[in-house]
Amino acid sequence: HERALMVNRLQKLTRMLRVHPDPKWKQEQQELIKRLK
């Protein structure tokens, strides 16, 4: 369940980064990718 939330968050971040590349979001995205591996 928590994994699904993280995947959701990651997808949302990816969409937001396409619109507005924010370093903070980029960092969070990298963190999520690490944790999901």
Results as ranks from 00 to 15, higher is better:
residue 23 P to Y: 03
residue 37 K to I: 10
residue 8 N to M: 15
residue 14 T to A: 11
residue 1 H to Y: 14
residue 28 E to S: 02
residue 23 P to R: 05
residue 27 Q to K: 13
residue 37 K to V: 07
residue 13 L to M: 01
residue 12 K to Q: 15
residue 6 M to P: 02
residue 14 T to Y: 09
residue 26 K to V: 11
residue 5 L to P: 03
residue 28 E to N: 01
residue 36 L to G: 00
residue 18 R to F: 05
residue 13 L to E: 00
residue 34 K to H: 09
residue 3 R to D: 04
residue 19 V to Y: 13
residue 12 K to T: 10
residue 20 H to Q: 08
residue 10 L to I: 07
residue 1 H to K: 12
residue 25 W to M: 15
residue 30 Q to F: 06
residue 5 L to H: 14
residue 22 D to I: 05
residue 17 L to F: 02
residue 37 K to W: 12
residue 29 Q to R: 12
residue 19 V to N: 13
residue 4 A to C: 15
residue 2 E to G: 06
residue 24 K to T: 10
residue 31 E to D: 11
residue 37 K to G: 10
residue 2 E to Y: 11
residue 7 V to K: 09
residue 22 D to T: 08
residue 28 E to M: 05
residue 13 L to D: 00
residue 10 L to G: 00
residue 4 A to K: 14
residue 15 R to E: 13
residue 19 V to I: 13
residue 27 Q to H: 10
residue 24 K to W: 05
residue 7 V to W: 15
residue 3 R to Q: 05
residue 27 Q to P: 02
residue 2 E to N: 09
residue 11 Q to T: 09
residue 5 L to D: 07
residue 34 K to E: 09
residue 26 K to R: 11
residue 22 D to A: 03
residue 20 H to I: 09
residue 19 V to H: 12
residue 15 R to G: 04
residue 32 L to A: 00
residue 6 M to V: 06
residue 9 R to I: 06
residue 13 L to W: 00
residue 28 E to Q: 04
residue 2 E to R: 08
residue 1 H to G: 09
residue 11 Q to M: 14
residue 10 L to N: 00
residue 36 L to W: 02
residue 8 N to I: 15
residue 11 Q to H: 12
residue 22 D to N: 14
residue 30 Q to N: 07
residue 12 K to A: 12
residue 26 K to A: 09
residue 2 E to H: 09
residue 2 E to M: 12
residue 33 I to K: 04
residue 26 K to P: 01
residue 9 R to H: 03
residue 35 R to P: 00
residue 11 Q to W: 13
residue 27 Q to T: 08
residue 8 N to C: 01
residue 37 K to Y: 15
residue 36 L to N: 01
residue 19 V to T: 13
residue 9 R to Y: 05
residue 29 Q to P: 00
residue 15 R to M: 10
residue 26 K to E: 09
residue 33 I to T: 03
residue 14 T to D: 04
residue 6 M to I: 15
residue 32 L to G: 00
residue 15 R to F: 06
residue 32 L to N: 02
residue 32 L to R: 00
residue 28 E to I: 08
residue 23 P to A: 08
residue 31 E to W: 12
residue 30 Q to H: 07
residue 29 Q to F: 13
residue 6 M to K: 03
residue 2 E to S: 08
residue 33 I to Q: 04
residue 7 V to L: 15
residue 3 R to A: 04
residue 5 L to Y: 11
residue 5 L to W: 15
residue 35 R to A: 11
residue 34 K to V: 08
residue 37 K to L: 13
residue 26 K to G: 03
residue 32 L to T: 01
residue 14 T to I: 11
residue 18 R to V: 04
residue 8 N to D: 12
residue 23 P to D: 04
residue 8 N to V: 14
residue 14 T to V: 07
residue 26 K to W: 07
residue 25 W to A: 06
residue 23 P to K: 08
residue 3 R to G: 03
residue 22 D to S: 09
residue 35 R to Y: 08
residue 31 E to M: 13
residue 1 H to Q: 11
residue 9 R to A: 03
residue 16 M to T: 02
residue 20 H to G: 03
residue 16 M to P: 01
residue 13 L to S: 01
residue 22 D to F: 09
residue 21 P to H: 14
residue 10 L to Y: 03
residue 35 R to I: 14
residue 25 W to N: 04
residue 17 L to T: 00
residue 28 E to D: 02
residue 26 K to H: 08
residue 36 L to R: 02
residue 5 L to Q: 14
residue 13 L to V: 04
residue 18 R to G: 05
residue 33 I to R: 07
residue 1 H to R: 14
residue 28 E to C: 02
residue 8 N to Y: 12
residue 9 R to G: 03
residue 14 T to M: 08
residue 23 P to H: 04
residue 5 L to C: 15
residue 33 I to E: 03
residue 21 P to W: 15
residue 8 N to Q: 15
residue 25 W to I: 13
residue 11 Q to Y: 12
residue 19 V to L: 13
residue 7 V to Y: 14
residue 34 K to Q: 11
residue 19 V to A: 10
residue 21 P to C: 08
residue 20 H to T: 08
residue 35 R to D: 02
residue 23 P to N: 07
residue 4 A to E: 12
residue 30 Q to E: 12
residue 36 L to P: 02
residue 22 D to P: 00
residue 16 M to V: 02
residue 9 R to D: 02
residue 25 W to P: 01
residue 24 K to P: 00
residue 13 L to K: 00
residue 20 H to V: 06
residue 1 H to D: 13
residue 34 K to L: 10
residue 32 L to M: 02
residue 17 L to H: 01
residue 34 K to R: 14
residue 27 Q to F: 10
residue 14 T to H: 07
residue 9 R to M: 06
residue 37 K to E: 06
residue 10 L to V: 03
residue 2 E to K: 09
residue 7 V to D: 02
residue 11 Q to F: 10
residue 14 T to E: 08
residue 36 L to E: 01
residue 16 M to Y: 05
residue 27 Q to S: 08
residue 31 E to P: 01
residue 22 D to V: 06
residue 1 H to S: 13
residue 22 D to E: 06
residue 33 I to P: 01
residue 15 R to D: 07
residue 23 P to C: 04
residue 7 V to P: 03
residue 10 L to T: 00
residue 37 K to C: 15
residue 29 Q to I: 15
residue 16 M to N: 02
residue 8 N to W: 12
residue 8 N to K: 15
residue 5 L to R: 15
residue 34 K to T: 11
residue 2 E to A: 10
residue 10 L to H: 01
residue 11 Q to E: 09
residue 24 K to V: 12
residue 8 N to R: 15
residue 32 L to D: 01
residue 10 L to R: 01
residue 29 Q to D: 01
residue 28 E to G: 01
residue 37 K to M: 14
residue 35 R to S: 06
residue 19 V to Q: 12
residue 25 W to Y: 11
residue 26 K to N: 04
residue 18 R to Y: 05
residue 7 V to I: 15
residue 4 A to F: 09
residue 5 L to T: 10
residue 34 K to I: 10
residue 35 R to V: 08
residue 12 K to W: 15
residue 13 L to Y: 01
residue 29 Q to M: 15
residue 20 H to P: 01
residue 24 K to F: 07
residue 18 R to I: 07
residue 6 M to R: 04
residue 35 R to T: 07
residue 31 E to I: 09
residue 33 I to L: 11
residue 29 Q to V: 15
residue 18 R to D: 04
residue 23 P to Q: 06
residue 7 V to T: 04
residue 20 H to S: 10
residue 6 M to F: 02
residue 20 H to E: 03
residue 12 K to R: 11
residue 22 D to K: 11
residue 18 R to W: 04
residue 27 Q to L: 14
residue 23 P to I: 05
residue 24 K to I: 11
residue 3 R to W: 14
residue 3 R to F: 14
residue 31 E to N: 07
residue 31 E to L: 08
residue 37 K to H: 10
residue 2 E to P: 06
residue 36 L to S: 01
residue 19 V to D: 09
residue 33 I to A: 04
residue 1 H to C: 15
residue 26 K to Y: 10
residue 4 A to N: 10
residue 5 L to M: 14
residue 4 A to T: 12
residue 7 V to E: 09
residue 36 L to C: 01
residue 3 R to L: 14
residue 10 L to D: 00
residue 35 R to K: 13
residue 21 P to L: 06
residue 16 M to W: 10
residue 31 E to S: 08
residue 8 N to G: 10
residue 33 I to S: 02
residue 27 Q to N: 08
residue 35 R to F: 10
residue 7 V to Q: 08
residue 36 L to H: 00
residue 26 K to F: 12
residue 37 K to T: 11
residue 23 P to F: 04
residue 31 E to G: 04
residue 19 V to E: 10
residue 8 N to H: 13
residue 17 L to N: 03
residue 24 K to Q: 09
residue 32 L to H: 00
residue 20 H to F: 12
residue 20 H to W: 11
residue 3 R to S: 04
residue 23 P to M: 04
residue 37 K to D: 06
residue 22 D to R: 08
residue 11 Q to P: 01
residue 24 K to C: 13
residue 30 Q to K: 06
residue 23 P to S: 06
residue 24 K to H: 07
residue 15 R to N: 07
residue 24 K to D: 07
residue 20 H to R: 11
residue 7 V to M: 14
residue 32 L to I: 08
residue 29 Q to G: 01
residue 30 Q to T: 09
residue 10 L to C: 01
residue 30 Q to C: 15
residue 28 E to K: 01
residue 10 L to M: 02
residue 34 K to W: 07
residue 14 T to L: 09
residue 26 K to T: 05
residue 8 N to F: 10
residue 6 M to T: 04
residue 1 H to M: 14
residue 12 K to Y: 15
residue 10 L to S: 00
residue 36 L to M: 04
residue 24 K to L: 09
residue 35 R to W: 12
residue 17 L to S: 02
residue 11 Q to D: 05
residue 20 H to K: 11
residue 13 L to T: 01
residue 19 V to R: 13
residue 26 K to L: 13
residue 14 T to F: 06
residue 7 V to R: 13
